[in-house]
Design a binder for these strands. Structure first.
Lengths: 243, 243
DNA sequence: ACTTGCGCAGTTGTAGGATGACCGTATGAT
DNA sequence: ATCATACGGTCATCCTACAACTGCGCAAGT
C-alpha cells in the first residue's frame, strides 16, 4: 500500500506539498481567519495521503502560528498579524513588484545597518569586513564565490552593528533575494551573471573605517539601489532620507 | 499504551517540546552545522516519545531550514544563515539587552515606515490611521483595548507604505514585543499598565496628513524611543539619522 | 589488480489502524 | 427546568509495516 495517487504534483516531500497548498489557500483568502479547517481525515482523503502526512503539514503551519489546533474541536486559521514566524514565499518573488518591495525593505535595513556599524564597529569588525572584500576582489572570481563573498560582506557589516536581530533580518532578506536570483538565472540562462561592483563596496568600507555614519549609510543606500538595478529591479520611489 | 513517561516536562504539545529542545541544542552550538542528528528512532527513545512525534518536530525545524533530512542518510543541521524563516525566541526577550536590540530594529523599521507612508499615503489610508487613533483616545480606555488600537495604528501606517514586506516585518516585531510585555506584566503585576501616549500619535498623524516624510519619520522615531522608555528600555546609542 | 554489479543493513518517507484525551451536544433522570 | 450522563466527533499519540533511498562490502567477472 504505497504511493497512492495524489492530486498535487511535484518533487517535494508530501507534507511540504500539503502545507504549501493549505498555506496558499489561507494566504489567498479561501479560508478566512477564525474559520475551521476540515478534519485531518478529510484532508488526508482530499489530498490522497495518510493522516500522518497531514499532521506533519499542520505541524509546520502551527509552528508559524498560521493555524491553531485544539484537541477535540479542530484546527482554526489565525489572523495573519499574530504569526510567530516570518516566511517569504519564493514563488511570489517571481513577480517583479514583490521583488521591488523586498529590495526596498533591504535598502532600509542595510542603510541603517551601515549607519550603525560606522558608529560602533571595532577593529576586528573592520577586519572581517575587509576579509570579505578581499574575497570579492581576489582570485575567487567564479560567480558563486563572489556572490558568497558579497553576502559575507553585508553580513559582516550587520554583525558590526552589535544588534543580533538586525543581523538575522538582513541575513534572511539577503538570502531570499539571492536564492530567487539564482533560481531565475537557471530558468533564464541568458540573464547574465550578476557581477558585484567592487568599487561600491570599497567605498562603503572606507566610510565605515572613517566612522562616518552619515556617509556610510548613504554609500550603502546607493549600493543597494545599484544592486537592484543590476538585476533589473528599479527602486522608483526613492527613500527620502536626510541627505 | 498511552502517554508514557517523558524526559522534558511542560504543558505544551509533545512535538513542540521536542522541536524546542532540538532547536536549543542547535542554537546553543551543541550540534554544529553540517553534523548529523541521531536517527529518528534514537531521538524517539531519547525523549521517550514515538517516532511520529519526532517526525512532526523535525517537520517544523525542516520548514525553518534549520535542518535538512535526506532519505536513506539522515538529518543534518544547516548553517544559521540560510534559514527560510525568522523566529524570535520569546525567552531571549526576557533579557533586557535583547529587548533593547529589538526595539532598535523596530525603531528603524517604523521610522522609515512613517517616512514612506507620508510620501505615499492616500486618503483612505489616512482614514484607517485616524480610525485607530479614535479607538485609542475614545472610550476604549481599558488596557488591552488601547494597546490593540496602538498596534492597529502602527500597522495602518505600515500598510500605507504600500510595501507588504514592511507591513509583515513591522507587524511581526510589534507583536513579539507586545506579547513579551504582556507576559512580563503577568509575572510582575506591580509593573504598571502601559499607557499609550496619544499626543505623540496625533503628532505623527498630523505629519502624515501633511505629507511631510522627514517630519513624520522624526516624529515616529521619537515616539518609539518614548515607547521604549515607557517600558523601561533605553535606546542609549541613538540612531544617527540626518536631523 | 581493477571494475562492475548485487545485495544487505541502515535511514527516512508513507500508510494504516488503534487507543487515549478532550469537546460539544443530545439524552434522560430528577 | 436543571443537571448528570452518555455518545459521537476530533485531535494527540502510539505502534507496526512497508517502500524508497543511500552507502558499503562482497563476490563475480574482466
Amino acid at each position: 500500500m504505497k504511493q497512492r495517487s495524489s492530486i498535487i504534483g511535484s518533487v517535494e516531500a508530501l507534507p511540504h506539498r500539503v502545507a504549501s497548498h493549505l498555506s496558499r489557500e489561507i494566504e489567498g483568502g479561501d479560508i478566512i481567519p477564525g474559520a475551521r479547517l476540515p478534519t485531518e481525515s478529510q484532508l488526508a482523503d482530499k489530498f490522497g495521503v495518510s493522516r500522518n502526512v497531514v499532521r506533519e503539514a499542520i505541524a509546520q503551519l502551527r509552528a508559524d502560528g498560521m493555524i491553531e489546533a485544539r484537541q477535540g474541536i479542530g484546527a482554526f486559521v489565525m489572523a495573519p498579524e499574530q504569526r510567530t514566524a516570518i516566511r517569504i514565499d519564493r514563488e511570489a518573488l517571481k513577480d517583479q513588484r514583490n521583488m521591488e518591495q523586498l529590495f526596498e525593505l533591504r535598502s532600509i535595513l542595510e542603510t541603517e545597518s551601515a549607519t550603525l556599524a560606522a558608529a560602533r564597529c571595532a577593529s576586528d569588525d573592520l577586519d572581517a569586513i575587509n576579509a570579505a572584500l578581499d574575497r570579492m576582489g581576489g582570485e575567487e572570481r567564479w560567480e558563486d564565490g563572489s556572490i558568497e563573498a558579497d553576502l559575507l560582506f553585508h553580513r559582516a557589516i550587520a554583525r558590526a552593528t552589535g544588534n543580533s536581530y538586525i543581523y538575522t533580518f538582513i541575513s534572511f532578506v539577503c538570502e531570499q533575494i539571492r536564492q530567487s536570483i539564482h533560481y531565475a538565472r537557471l530558468t533564464n540562462p541568458l540573464h547574465d551573471l550578476v557581477e558585484v561592483n567592487v568599487a561600491e563596496h570599497v567605498r562603503i568600507y572606507d566610510e565605515l573605517a572613517a566612522h562616518d555614519p552619515q556617509a556610510a549609510g548613504e554609500a550603502m543606500r546607493r549600493h543597494i539601489e545599484g544592486a537592484a538595478a543590476r538585476v533589473g529591479v528599479e527602486l522608483t520611489a526613492k527613500l527620502n532620507r536626510g541627505k
